[in-house]
Amino acid sequence: MKTLMIIGFVFLGVALRAQDPKKILDKVDQNMSSENRMFESTMTIHGKRNSRSISSRSWSEGSQKSFTEYLSPASEKGTKMLKLEKQLWIYSPTTDRTIQISGHMLRQSVMGSDLSYEDMMEDRKLTDVYAAKLVGEEKIGDRNTWVLELTAVVEDIAYYKQKVWIDTEKYVPLRQELFAKSGQILKRMELQEVKMIESRWFPTLVIYKDMLKEGKGTEFRMTNIKFNVKIPDYIFTKAALKQ
Protein backbone atom coordinates (compact mmCIF):
# COMPACT_ATOMS: atom_id res chain seq x y z
CA MET A 1 0.00 0.00 0.00
CA LYS A 2 2.74 2.36 1.04
CA THR A 3 4.78 1.52 -2.05
CA LEU A 4 1.80 2.13 -4.19
CA MET A 5 1.37 5.56 -2.72
CA ILE A 6 5.02 6.44 -3.24
CA ILE A 7 4.83 5.33 -6.84
CA GLY A 8 1.73 7.40 -7.22
CA PHE A 9 3.44 10.50 -5.87
CA VAL A 10 6.48 10.01 -8.05
CA PHE A 11 4.31 9.63 -11.07
CA LEU A 12 2.33 12.70 -10.18
CA GLY A 13 5.51 14.66 -9.56
CA VAL A 14 6.86 13.75 -12.96
CA ALA A 15 3.61 14.70 -14.59
CA LEU A 16 3.54 18.05 -12.81
CA ARG A 17 7.13 18.83 -13.58
CA ALA A 18 6.54 17.99 -17.19
CA GLN A 19 4.13 20.89 -17.42
CA ASP A 20 5.40 24.40 -17.10
CA PRO A 21 2.47 26.50 -15.91
CA LYS A 22 3.66 29.46 -17.94
CA LYS A 23 3.55 27.34 -21.05
CA ILE A 24 0.07 26.11 -20.18
CA LEU A 25 -1.13 29.66 -19.82
CA ASP A 26 0.54 30.65 -23.07
CA LYS A 27 -1.36 27.91 -24.80
CA VAL A 28 -4.55 29.00 -23.11
CA ASP A 29 -3.96 32.55 -24.24
CA GLN A 30 -3.47 31.29 -27.77
CA ASN A 31 -6.93 29.82 -27.60
CA MET A 32 -8.63 32.60 -25.76
CA SER A 33 -6.96 35.78 -27.03
CA SER A 34 -6.86 37.09 -30.52
CA GLU A 35 -5.88 40.19 -32.43
CA ASN A 36 -9.51 40.93 -32.89
CA ARG A 37 -12.76 39.09 -32.84
CA MET A 38 -16.46 39.45 -33.11
CA PHE A 39 -19.25 37.39 -31.67
CA GLU A 40 -22.86 37.41 -30.75
CA SER A 41 -23.90 36.58 -27.25
CA THR A 42 -26.86 36.01 -25.06
CA MET A 43 -26.63 36.86 -21.41
CA THR A 44 -29.19 35.24 -19.16
CA ILE A 45 -29.64 36.89 -15.81
CA HIS A 46 -31.47 35.13 -13.04
CA GLY A 47 -33.18 37.73 -10.94
CA LYS A 48 -35.04 37.20 -7.73
CA ARG A 49 -38.36 37.11 -9.55
CA ASN A 50 -37.62 36.16 -13.12
CA SER A 51 -34.90 35.51 -15.60
CA ARG A 52 -34.25 37.47 -18.72
CA SER A 53 -31.97 37.26 -21.67
CA ILE A 54 -30.13 40.01 -23.41
CA SER A 55 -28.47 39.48 -26.71
CA SER A 56 -25.74 41.55 -28.21
CA ARG A 57 -23.09 41.68 -30.88
CA SER A 58 -19.54 42.58 -29.96
CA TRP A 59 -16.36 43.55 -31.72
CA SER A 60 -13.04 43.80 -30.06
CA GLU A 61 -9.50 44.59 -31.01
CA GLY A 62 -6.64 43.62 -28.76
CA SER A 63 -7.51 44.16 -25.14
CA GLN A 64 -8.01 47.91 -25.26
CA LYS A 65 -10.88 48.40 -27.65
CA SER A 66 -14.30 46.87 -27.72
CA PHE A 67 -17.70 47.77 -29.00
CA THR A 68 -20.99 46.11 -28.13
CA GLU A 69 -24.39 46.63 -29.62
CA TYR A 70 -27.45 45.23 -27.85
CA LEU A 71 -29.94 43.48 -30.08
CA SER A 72 -32.73 42.39 -27.79
CA PRO A 73 -34.94 42.65 -25.80
CA ALA A 74 -36.68 45.61 -27.34
CA SER A 75 -35.97 47.81 -24.36
CA GLU A 76 -32.23 47.40 -24.77
CA LYS A 77 -32.13 47.25 -28.56
CA GLY A 78 -29.83 49.82 -30.05
CA THR A 79 -27.98 50.49 -26.83
CA LYS A 80 -24.27 50.55 -27.57
CA MET A 81 -21.23 50.41 -25.42
CA LEU A 82 -17.75 51.54 -26.37
CA LYS A 83 -14.66 50.81 -24.39
CA LEU A 84 -11.36 52.46 -25.19
CA GLU A 85 -8.59 51.69 -22.76
CA LYS A 86 -9.86 52.79 -19.34
CA GLN A 87 -12.87 54.67 -20.61
CA LEU A 88 -16.40 53.48 -21.18
CA TRP A 89 -19.28 55.15 -22.97
CA ILE A 90 -22.84 54.00 -23.28
CA TYR A 91 -25.18 55.27 -25.94
CA SER A 92 -28.92 54.96 -25.59
CA PRO A 93 -31.07 55.44 -28.68
CA THR A 94 -34.19 56.46 -26.75
CA THR A 95 -32.46 59.50 -25.32
CA ASP A 96 -29.90 59.94 -28.12
CA ARG A 97 -27.30 60.49 -25.46
CA THR A 98 -23.79 59.23 -24.93
CA ILE A 99 -23.01 58.85 -21.27
CA GLN A 100 -19.60 58.28 -19.93
CA ILE A 101 -19.32 55.79 -17.13
CA SER A 102 -16.43 56.42 -14.87
CA GLY A 103 -14.96 55.94 -11.46
CA HIS A 104 -17.28 54.47 -8.94
CA MET A 105 -20.00 53.66 -11.48
CA LEU A 106 -17.74 51.12 -13.17
CA ARG A 107 -18.12 48.94 -10.13
CA GLN A 108 -21.87 48.63 -10.59
CA SER A 109 -23.38 45.50 -11.99
CA VAL A 110 -24.13 45.44 -15.70
CA MET A 111 -27.84 44.98 -16.31
CA GLY A 112 -28.36 43.29 -12.98
CA SER A 113 -25.91 40.53 -13.84
CA ASP A 114 -23.13 39.13 -11.70
CA LEU A 115 -20.63 41.09 -13.78
CA SER A 116 -19.60 44.65 -13.17
CA TYR A 117 -18.66 47.06 -15.93
CA GLU A 118 -15.15 46.68 -14.62
CA ASP A 119 -15.26 42.91 -14.94
CA MET A 120 -16.25 43.39 -18.53
CA MET A 121 -13.41 45.79 -19.11
CA GLU A 122 -10.72 43.59 -17.61
CA ASP A 123 -9.44 41.51 -20.46
CA ARG A 124 -5.70 41.63 -20.24
CA LYS A 125 -3.94 38.36 -21.09
CA LEU A 126 -3.64 36.19 -18.00
CA THR A 127 0.10 35.82 -18.64
CA ASP A 128 0.52 39.58 -18.58
CA VAL A 129 -0.92 40.08 -15.14
CA TYR A 130 -0.53 36.82 -13.25
CA ALA A 131 2.27 34.46 -12.31
CA ALA A 132 1.09 30.89 -12.49
CA LYS A 133 1.82 27.87 -10.33
CA LEU A 134 0.61 24.37 -11.04
CA VAL A 135 -0.98 23.02 -7.91
CA GLY A 136 -2.60 19.81 -8.97
CA GLU A 137 -4.84 17.93 -11.33
CA GLU A 138 -8.55 17.44 -11.06
CA LYS A 139 -11.37 16.10 -13.08
CA ILE A 140 -14.23 18.33 -14.10
CA GLY A 141 -16.93 16.19 -15.51
CA ASP A 142 -15.09 13.76 -17.75
CA ARG A 143 -12.30 16.17 -18.57
CA ASN A 144 -8.87 16.13 -16.98
CA THR A 145 -7.66 19.49 -15.85
CA TRP A 146 -4.58 21.11 -14.46
CA VAL A 147 -5.27 23.40 -11.56
CA LEU A 148 -3.26 26.58 -11.76
CA GLU A 149 -2.97 29.14 -9.07
CA LEU A 150 -2.45 32.60 -10.41
CA THR A 151 -1.04 35.42 -8.33
CA ALA A 152 -1.09 38.98 -9.57
CA VAL A 153 2.20 40.48 -10.69
CA VAL A 154 0.72 43.89 -11.38
CA GLU A 155 -0.88 46.14 -8.80
CA ASP A 156 -3.88 47.57 -10.59
CA ILE A 157 -5.94 44.46 -10.72
CA ALA A 158 -9.32 43.64 -9.21
CA TYR A 159 -8.62 40.04 -8.22
CA TYR A 160 -5.33 39.32 -6.55
CA LYS A 161 -5.57 35.59 -6.94
CA GLN A 162 -7.24 33.21 -9.31
CA LYS A 163 -7.56 29.52 -9.49
CA VAL A 164 -7.99 28.13 -12.98
CA TRP A 165 -8.86 24.62 -14.07
CA ILE A 166 -7.43 24.00 -17.52
CA ASP A 167 -8.40 21.22 -19.83
CA THR A 168 -5.24 19.18 -20.33
CA GLU A 169 -6.02 18.45 -23.96
CA LYS A 170 -7.79 21.48 -25.26
CA TYR A 171 -6.01 24.14 -23.22
CA VAL A 172 -9.09 26.08 -22.31
CA PRO A 173 -10.14 26.97 -18.76
CA LEU A 174 -13.15 25.02 -17.57
CA ARG A 175 -13.48 26.71 -14.24
CA GLN A 176 -12.11 29.91 -12.84
CA GLU A 177 -12.31 31.16 -9.30
CA LEU A 178 -11.51 34.74 -8.35
CA PHE A 179 -10.20 35.50 -4.89
CA ALA A 180 -9.66 38.48 -2.69
CA LYS A 181 -6.19 39.15 -1.29
CA SER A 182 -7.20 37.43 1.88
CA GLY A 183 -8.09 34.27 0.01
CA GLN A 184 -11.83 34.79 0.28
CA ILE A 185 -13.57 33.54 -2.82
CA LEU A 186 -15.47 36.30 -4.61
CA LYS A 187 -16.56 34.97 -7.99
CA ARG A 188 -16.69 31.70 -9.81
CA MET A 189 -16.96 31.07 -13.52
CA GLU A 190 -17.83 27.75 -15.10
CA LEU A 191 -16.77 27.56 -18.76
CA GLN A 192 -18.62 24.99 -20.78
CA GLU A 193 -19.54 23.83 -24.26
CA VAL A 194 -16.02 24.02 -25.58
CA LYS A 195 -16.10 24.08 -29.36
CA MET A 196 -13.54 24.15 -32.10
CA ILE A 197 -13.75 27.51 -33.77
CA GLU A 198 -11.31 28.43 -36.51
CA SER A 199 -8.77 25.88 -35.34
CA ARG A 200 -8.92 26.86 -31.68
CA TRP A 201 -10.86 25.49 -28.76
CA PHE A 202 -13.17 28.00 -27.22
CA PRO A 203 -15.73 27.75 -24.38
CA THR A 204 -18.99 29.16 -25.65
CA LEU A 205 -20.92 29.19 -22.41
CA VAL A 206 -19.74 30.93 -19.25
CA ILE A 207 -21.68 30.87 -16.02
CA TYR A 208 -20.71 33.66 -13.68
CA LYS A 209 -21.56 33.61 -10.03
CA ASP A 210 -20.92 36.29 -7.46
CA MET A 211 -20.12 34.11 -4.47
CA LEU A 212 -21.00 36.74 -1.87
CA LYS A 213 -24.50 37.29 -3.14
CA GLU A 214 -27.42 34.97 -3.17
CA GLY A 215 -28.68 34.04 -6.58
CA LYS A 216 -28.28 31.67 -9.45
CA GLY A 217 -25.64 33.53 -11.37
CA THR A 218 -25.47 34.81 -14.90
CA GLU A 219 -25.11 32.75 -18.06
CA PHE A 220 -23.16 34.12 -20.97
CA ARG A 221 -23.49 32.24 -24.22
CA MET A 222 -21.51 33.15 -27.30
CA THR A 223 -22.47 32.30 -30.85
CA ASN A 224 -21.17 33.25 -34.24
CA ILE A 225 -17.66 33.74 -32.97
CA LYS A 226 -15.16 34.96 -35.55
CA PHE A 227 -11.50 35.51 -34.85
CA ASN A 228 -9.13 37.82 -36.63
CA VAL A 229 -11.62 39.43 -38.90
CA LYS A 230 -11.01 42.86 -40.25
CA ILE A 231 -12.91 45.35 -38.16
CA PRO A 232 -13.20 48.83 -39.63
CA ASP A 233 -11.54 51.50 -37.49
CA TYR A 234 -14.65 53.66 -37.24
CA ILE A 235 -16.29 51.00 -35.09
CA PHE A 236 -14.13 52.03 -32.17
CA THR A 237 -15.10 55.69 -32.21
CA LYS A 238 -17.73 57.63 -30.33
CA ALA A 239 -19.29 58.54 -33.65
CA ALA A 240 -20.12 54.88 -34.20
CA LEU A 241 -22.23 54.89 -31.06
CA LYS A 242 -24.78 57.15 -32.65
CA GLN A 243 -25.11 55.17 -35.88
Binding site: I157, A158, A180, K181, S182, Q184, L186, L212
Partner: peptide
Protein backbone atom coordinates in the same frame (compact mmCIF):
# COMPACT_ATOMS: atom_id res chain seq x y z
CA UNK B 1 -19.49 39.47 9.25
CA UNK B 2 -17.84 39.31 5.87
CA UNK B 3 -16.76 42.61 4.45
CA UNK B 4 -15.34 43.29 1.05
CA UNK B 5 -13.31 46.33 0.14
CA UNK B 6 -10.71 47.43 -2.37
CA UNK B 7 -7.16 48.45 -1.69
CA UNK B 8 -5.57 51.56 -3.15
CA UNK B 9 -5.10 49.81 -6.51
CA UNK B 10 -8.66 48.65 -6.72
CA UNK B 11 -7.82 45.06 -5.85
CA UNK B 12 -10.61 43.29 -4.03
CA UNK B 13 -10.09 42.02 -0.59
CA UNK B 14 -12.55 40.41 1.75
CA UNK B 15 -12.32 39.22 5.31
Amino acid sequence: VLIRWRDKNGTFDAR
